[in-house]
Simulated scan of single mutants.
Amino acid sequence: MPQRHARLDSTMLDRLLVRPGWTRTVLVRRSTAGALAFLAAVLFVRDAAATDRVPIVVAARDLAPGRPLQPEDVRIAGYEPGTVPNGVITDIDDATTHTVAGPIRAGEPLTDVRLLTPRLAGAALGSADGRIVPVRLTDAAVTDLLREGDIVDVLTVQADGDGGEQSARILTTDSVVVLISEKDARQRSSDRVVLVAMSPEDATAVAAASLVSSLTVTFH
């Protein structure tokens, strides 16, 4: 009978199969132990990374502007430290004291400039001393055309002298619309409120004029 020679190109499986049974058992045990040790290391690293995540408040559903936040609207999610946005809200109780200033998608982090907070006016104007003024426009159709983020001038009319003639008066320029109240079938269209960010001086003039005069805006 011709003698069988070991193939020079034999695979690891071939070599394992020609070993005695006890040798194969030891190798299998060692391989299994090595695989389990590697898996344990991977799980440890993953759990450590998860532990290092920063808990922040995110939207639990799509949110519309003008909506006062409720506990069911938000949830806590873990973010890696390097991906946490500036001004993010980290406490659900804090989030539910505010109103949504613009559309927010489910899963989106809630920050101070996406909610009606003191920092929203400053962020909109690029100035730390910004103010937000509620304005009811005379023409409800103009209110329907406005969108959050629009740059507008606020105007009123004033009497010229004793003749009773009236002319336009610009109260503020380059102001930013931050929120428009939603339409409600139970109220008149003219009751909708537009929140506009502007400087403290202009805010005083606009607020005073809104008590006695009709207001409108022009778009940039």
Rank of each mutant, 00 (worst) to 15 (best):
L155M: 11
L120H: 08
V88Q: 04
V135Y: 12
I170V: 15
R114G: 12
S127M: 12
D144V: 08
A128Y: 09
T96S: 05
P55G: 14
A35S: 07
Q158T: 14
D93M: 09
R67M: 09
A121Q: 06
P109C: 14
D144P: 00
D52K: 13
I76E: 13
D112R: 13
A168M: 04
T143K: 04
L155D: 02
L39W: 15
A77R: 10
D94P: 00
A50F: 06
A64F: 01
V57M: 09
A37L: 15
L145Y: 01
R131P: 02
P55F: 07
A40T: 13
A141G: 03
L137W: 03
S127V: 14
L115M: 09
P118K: 07
V84E: 05
D153K: 07
D47C: 02
I170D: 01
R131F: 14
D91A: 06
G130R: 03
G163D: 14
L43M: 10
I132W: 09
G161D: 11
Q70D: 13
V54T: 13
D139E: 11
A140Q: 08
L125F: 14
R67Q: 10
I92D: 01
L145H: 04
A124E: 01
P55V: 06
A123S: 10
G122C: 03
Q166T: 15
P81E: 07
P68T: 02
A140V: 00
P85S: 10
L39R: 08
L115I: 08
T83I: 02
L36C: 11
G82H: 15
T99I: 13
I170L: 08
I132C: 04
P118D: 03
D47M: 08
A49H: 11
L43S: 09
R67K: 05
V58A: 07
P68Q: 03
R67S: 11
A101G: 14
D129W: 14
V57R: 13
H98R: 15
Q166P: 01
T97W: 02
D94Q: 12
L115P: 06
F38Y: 06
V152T: 04
T143L: 02
L146M: 08
G87E: 03
V57C: 07
E165G: 07
E165P: 02
T111R: 09
N86L: 10
Q158C: 00
I104Y: 00
A128F: 08
T156K: 15
G164T: 03
D129Q: 07
A101L: 06
G164Y: 04
L171Y: 10
D139F: 01
R105S: 14
Q166I: 06
V88Y: 02
L116V: 10
R119D: 10
T99H: 03
R46F: 12
P118Y: 10
V45F: 12
D162I: 10
R131V: 11
D139K: 09
P65Q: 08
T138R: 15
L43Q: 11
P103K: 04
P68H: 02
G107C: 04
E108H: 01
A168F: 15
I92H: 05
L43E: 11
I104W: 00
R61I: 12
D52A: 15
R169T: 02
T156M: 06
D160Y: 01
G34I: 07
D112F: 02
V113D: 12
D94H: 12
A48E: 12
A77V: 01
V152K: 05
G102A: 15
A95I: 06
R114C: 02
V135I: 08
P134R: 08
